[in-house]
């Protein structure tokens, strides 16, 4: 059954997007991405270190994958915009995850700055994927500003607590007509499946995979869970509770009284 996700003109088969941060070695990144055939992979943009010759991360990302550059490090819209433009100069093709965080305690994204950055970058032709604190009206503003999808957090970055923002994300899925991709905080494959069952278009996982003892196995688990959750969402039938029979009709009995 065809169920391809199409975003910004690109067909995406694997709805598990993978972040490449926090891995112990780049070679593991390569194994993970190749094993699960990752379609969308996020990287960051950083200053080169002249003292240690860094191998280019791109050598470890399958050529067929879509690169999404994260503006992490940006504390304001202006900084995020600068990083995005630099990423294009670096050879990126414009897929940008806007991450604007000036909160070092919880790492919660600043929705207001994110909306500003989205507006500017969308106009310049970037494919903008804003990372946000779940809020229905901010999600709508992001789509109005030109975002191609919206990425609400499941729980704070690195916390691995699952989708604690479930109610709010469900509302966004119900009301916003754009792909909703839960990003951050997912700790186990079951949580990724939960997101997909709710109707998410995809999920982005980084820490849970990078810090697992066996990263490739964990990535496989997540990849399969995403597929399972998506199937359940598409197949959703009637899981309704049975109706309780009513011996009397306290509310509508009056209709039969004469």
């Amino acid at each position: 059954m065809k169920d391809t996700l199409i975003i910004a003109g690109r067909a995406i088969k694997n709805r598990l997007f993978v972040g490449t941060g926090k891995f112990p070695r780049k070679s593991i990144v390569k194994d993970v991405l190749e094993t699960i055939k990752a379609d969308v992979v996020t990287v960051s943009l950083r200053r080169v270190d002249l003292d240690s010759q860094d191998e280019n991360i791109l050598e470890f990302v399958p050529k067929s994958s879509q690169l999404m550059v994260n503006t992490s490090g940006a504390r304001t819209a202006e900084e995020a915009i600068r990083i995005a433009r630099l990423s294009k100069a670096c050879g990126g093709d414009g897929w940008i995850k806007i991450e604007v965080i000036s909160d070092s305690k919880y790492l919660l994204p600043d929705n207001e700055e994110t909306i500003k950055a989205t507006e500017v970058l969308a106009k310049e032709g970037f494919k903008v994927f804003p990372y946000m604190t779940p809020d229905l009206y901010d999600a709508k503003r992001l789509v109005d500003a030109g975002a191609v999808a919206v990425m609400p957090l499941g729980s704070p970055i690195g916390s691995n607590r699952g989708i604690k923002t479930k109610e709010l994300v469900q509302i966004i899925i119900n009301e916003v007509k754009a792909p909703i991709i839960v990003d951050a905080g997912l700790g186990m494959p079951s949580e990724a499946a939960e997101c997909m069952e709710m109707g998410c278009a995809a999920v982005l996982v980084n820490t849970a995979i990078a810090t697992a003892k066996n990263q490739v196995l964990m990535a496989e688990g997540f990849s399969e869970a995403v597929k399972a959750g998506r199937k359940a969402f598409l197949a959703k039938g009637n899981q309704a509770e049975q109706i309780k029979a009513h011996a009397s009709s306290p509310l509508t009995g009056f209709l039969h009284e004469k």
């Binding site: 119900n174 009637n238 309704a240 509770e241 049975q242 109706i243």
Partner: peptide, 12 residues
């Protein structure tokens, strides 16, 4: 009948 039951059990 199932459709009515579903409508009564759901939220959205």
């Amino acid at each position: 009948e199932n459709d009515i039951i579903t409508a009564l059990s759901g939220d959205n």
